[in-house]
Design a protein around this nucleic acid. Sequence first.
DNA 1: GTTGGTGCAAACCATTTGCACTGGC
DNA 2: GCCAGTGCAAATGGTTTGCACCAAC
Lengths: 160, 160
Amino acid sequence: MEKRLERIKKHLHSQSYKLTPQREATVRVLLEHEEDHLSAEDVYLLVKEKSPEIGLATVYRTLELLADLKIVDKINFGDGVSRFDLRQEGAAHFHHHLVCIECGAVDEIQQDLLGDVEAIVERDFNFKIKDHRLTFHGICYRCHDKEKQDAENEKNTETV
Amino acid sequence: MEKRLERIKKHLHSQSYKLTPQREATVRVLLEHEEDHLSAEDVYLLVKEKSPEIGLATVYRTLELLADLKIVDKINFGDGVSRFDLRQEGAAHFHHHLVCIECGAVDEIQQDLLGDVEAIVERDFNFKIKDHRLTFHGICYRCHDKEKQDAENEKNTETV
DNA sequence: GTTGGTGCAAACCATTTGCACTGGC
DNA sequence: GCCAGTGCAAATGGTTTGCACCAAC
């Protein structure tokens, strides 16, 4: 954790930005909630728990800065808020998401699935790919299991 | 064109919605600008050219309705506005986009590239896919060509 | 003392909503 | 007459911005 913070600090310095206490607090929250796809507001509230004096605008400015530096990815699942996701270190590309349309859960797929697809796009469309966004919408394994479970329970109730 | 309008009308009727003049005007704009990835505001302005009395809220409500009925797809390229795209008739899935980070142009890929990827996701993550969003960000062939051209011109100027 | 960064409040802007009105069944 | 649909204006809510202030070099 500290190591990644240190690397982000260097990354900022390399572009003549400072890792101020506010920025550090924001980055720490992101590191501690790496799985969570937090919105700016979410980040703000979590930052505030430890550093109450910090302002919402600063969090927004920090997230924007981090996105510019490609330290985080700004993503959008179509629910009116931007979410921020730490990029895997060394990952050339954005990871993918599975959004559950039942419960809203968002799971991540780190593995690169698009190698072949990208080759096709670059060749057939003469398009130089720099990044991509891939999101699947559907039913996650939890809701899937739950549905089965509910069906079971239903059956048991009937037989009582 | 009329045929598609007719089918959309039937689609609305099948869910007990009417194709009012305002809705028809909105759908016509979408049909006439199928390639353009219009924002709600864009649609509104175009609708207004022919039907000045129409209100912005109505356009929003119509677009929302069309999205609910899966007649259009609501998409988001990360620039703060939702865009609306007519779904190809009979297309089970959303088509893909190539967004140019130089000139902002958005091209479409209709062909289905994700068959294999979807199979992997369904199997490995036990995730029932209902829809997907795939967007590539990079340099389009136009900007690519233009850069080459510019380099050429540069060279010619030098030798003059 | 200049400058990058911050906090606050106000501004912004895409989208949604309340409400009175209307036109077709 | 009822009710879906509409237009307008006001409200909403996430995000950005203006500005005074501060802390570090």
